[in-house]
Amino acid sequence: MSVTKPPIPAPPSAPGAPQGAPATQVSLLEIFITFLIIGGISFGGGVVAYLRNALVVEKGWLDEEEFLTALEISQALPGLNATNMSVIVGDRLRGPVGAIVGFLGMTLPGGLLVFALGIFYVSNHGNPAMHAILAGIGAAAVGLLAAVTVQIGHKQLEHLREILLILITVVLVSFLHVSLVLVLLTVLPLALFIYRPGRGEVDEP
């Protein structure tokens, strides 16, 4: 699958432009509003499900395969899935300006809410009720993070070499407090060597 990029953005389309047609016909406003809605309703994480529903099911801007490819790129690169997806899909639809518009839509609702909460937090420092609520949320977040990690890791916890790579990473970061730069510079090449192409063994994806 290859994504062709038109050099010149086309003018905004009328509503009801043919779906799956050359993506240049999507208006910047529509990109902005679509990501604004995703960014505004995706409470509790799991942005990927919201993205898939909006981009594949509702708008038809990407088919399943294109969505998965964009997600693969988002996951392989630094940055958050949510914002990387907004950039990649916005770029695909309307070039760099589309990427900026998608990104702003994605981050604006949550960003403004967090900013308002942050102002409240800093000016109410020492308020015992506020700290108690945040302590409870923090504890719940730990349970949530642990569950999500185990769910994602479950697929990997069957092969010895994957378990070893997971353990090496955790020990280096959490217990030996090795800087993340060093961890990535050592463990990633090691893992790439293990999974190098043509090592005469076929893995399930």
Binding site: Q75, A76, I152
Partner: peptide, 20 residues
């Protein structure tokens, strides 16, 4: 594909470290 497969366990390890 090699990069994706190499990243997968590292990402799980980093998520576990983030949880810790």
């Amino acid at each position: 594909l090699a990069l994706q497969m190499a990243l997968a366990p590292i990402v799980v390890g980093l998520m576990a470290a983030g949880t810790v």
